[in-house]
Structure formats: C-alpha cells, structure tokens
Computed example of a mutant assay.
Amino acid sequence: MAGDPYSELGVKRDASDAEIQKAFRKLAKELHPDTNKDNKVAEERFKRITAAYDFLKDADKRKKFDRGEIDADGREIFRGGGGAGRAGGSPFGGGGRSTHFEGMDIDDIMGMFGGGARGGSPFGGGFGGAREQAPTKGSDVKIKLDIDLLDTIIGNTRRVLLSDGRTLDVNIPKGSRDGQTLRLKGQGSPSASGRGPHGDAMVELHLKPHPIFRLDGNDLHMDLFVSLPDAILGGKVQASTPDGPVSVNLAKGSNSGAILRLKGRGAYEAKGGTRGDLFAHVVLAMPDKGVDGIPADLKADFTALMERWRDKGGYTPTVTARRK
C-alpha cells in the first residue's frame, strides 16, 4: 500500500475508530468488485482502501505510524547517521578503511545484509529508507454461522456477508458438528502491504435445534405420533426422515415408548462417512379435538365401549420406555 492510509480513506489523522470504519464501509460499497465489474481502476482502489483500513484498525501499527516508526506498508523506518562504528563513525567498524570485508566482493558484502548490490539496496528503498521485510499475511476473519441439522446431513452451501462488504459462499460438508470451525484459505483480509497472501476465513458453525429430530452422536431420535386405532390394530404408518417421509410397520398393540429403528437414516460421521440410525419413539395421540374429533356415527359406540372397559377394571398405565 503506497501513500498515507488516512488519505486513502479520506479521514483526518485524529479520526476515531468509528469514523475510520464508517469511511471504509462507504468506500467499500462504492468500489466493491461486484458493483464495478471489469473496472480495474475501482478494483485497485478497493484493494488500497482495504489495506488502509486493515492497517489503521491495528492500534499498535497506527501508533507506530503516527510516531514515524513504520511506513504505510508496516516496515520499520531506518534512521541513518554516524556513531554505529568506531573512530570516524563508520558503520563498518574501522577508522578510514575497512578490513572486515577484505577478500569479499560487493555481492558478498551486500548479501550479509539480506540484499544484493546489483538488486538494489539491502534496506529496501535506498540508504536512509526502510529495511525490506518479507510480505506479511493478511489477518484472519472470524465468522459465526447458524446452520440447520439437515445442512449437516444432506450438505448445503450458505452465503455470508463479511464486514468489508464481500460475500462468501461456505460449503457445509456432511457430518459437520456444532462448534466446528471451517477454515477457508485465502478468504480473509488482504495483506497490509498488498504483496503478501490474504488471511483465512474461520467459520464457526452453530447448530440450530430442529423441530423434529434430535441429534445424539451419529444417531437421530424423533417422536412418532400415532393414532389410537393404528396403535391397537397395527399396520403401516408414515414417519418423517431427513430424506423424506417413509412407511414403517407398527406392531399391533403398540404403546407409547415403543421404539422403531430405521437403519441408515441418521446423521453422517464426519471422517468415515458412515451414517447412523434414526430411532422413532412411538407416542399415542388422541384427535386434536379429543373425543369430539371422533366421527359422529362412531362417537356414541366408542364412548360406550370405553365406559364398559373402565367399569370392568380398565388398566393401570406403566412407563415402558424413557424418551431419549
């Protein structure tokens, strides 16, 4: 990044962090590549304001820059002058003649400072300039992303908006788990110097509760609500699965707490790719309107049957299984 980061963003040197951020966001919206396709000037300007913002939001770098200790690329300012050596102030440690480098050519001498005579000054910008440093990597960007349970089972791609106005498509692999962090290399902030690699995007996944399924390791659990006639007579009933509804066989006389196992209908294991099972916990359910939900021509007979059953002793319900 050449020039002054304050000038790049159009803010004063005493601007607050909030003012710097506001100026950056305004410029980022105007110059973003998505709204300036094939506009190389806007693209280059966007890179410079991003680098300027990354530089100024680093409090330590900003203070050093304001004190004149580093330049806009974050490189240390080399302050030349005598006094580094002996007698006469030569930095090479002699009076008027150096003996330390006798027998060495100029390339060897300059190589000791990390540069070469023919490639320019070892201090990166001429003597009295800044010492050359290796390009630094941009900072990582941390993102929290809410995902659905089905995203981890069938896979999905979710789009997120970054603070700098960029959008990022995040591929959620099968077997992802709550709290897992996905690293997207090169999708973070650009290097402050504009010459180093971008940082990475660190996406932390947060799993939202599902209205039907409950996750337990690689297995899923759910409540399977069945009617009283189906529970007494048995037969095929419909059950929800992550892959869509399926028909399952309900045994005659099934009770609440009975568990039906659907093999291979659970969640994926992250590494091996194997899939767990789905356990459907039977729950007997009356009509939404209670007895009033029974067809009118059956209601009287049903009520009479229940009364005779209760008069003959009925039965005492027991817990047959605990819901997971």
Rank of each mutant, 00 (worst) to 15 (best):
D292E: 14
L260S: 04
K208Q: 14
L27F: 00
V282F: 02
G126T: 06
G94A: 11
G83R: 11
P242L: 06
K61Y: 10
G82Q: 13
I153K: 00
P245K: 04
N218T: 12
F101A: 03
G126I: 00
N255C: 06
H221P: 10
V246N: 05
D178R: 10
A52S: 13
D219N: 15
G244L: 01
A285E: 11
V319N: 15
I109W: 04
G83E: 11
F55Y: 12
G120K: 08
G82H: 13
S189A: 13
K61V: 00
P197H: 04
Y268P: 01
I259Y: 03
G114K: 00
G3I: 07
L262R: 04
R75P: 01
A72T: 08
D301I: 09
F65Q: 00
I106T: 15
A258R: 13
Q238M: 06
S7P: 01
R214P: 03
K37V: 09
G116K: 10
G3V: 09
H198S: 15
S176T: 04
V226W: 05
M286V: 11
Q21Y: 08
K47W: 01
D169W: 07
G257R: 00
Q180Y: 10
S121F: 05
K61Q: 11
I20E: 04
P211L: 02
I259M: 09
T35N: 15
D4F: 02
R62F: 02
K40S: 15
R118I: 07
I232N: 07
L161A: 14
D108R: 14
G103S: 02
L262Y: 04
I106C: 10
D105Y: 09
G114L: 01
G293K: 05
L278W: 00
G111E: 04
A285Y: 01
K12N: 10
R195H: 13
G155M: 07
L205M: 09
T50E: 15
S90G: 11
A23Y: 00
E43H: 12
G82M: 08
H206L: 11
S191I: 00
I20W: 05
V203K: 03
G126D: 05
D301L: 12
R45F: 07
A270G: 08
L233D: 10
V283W: 05
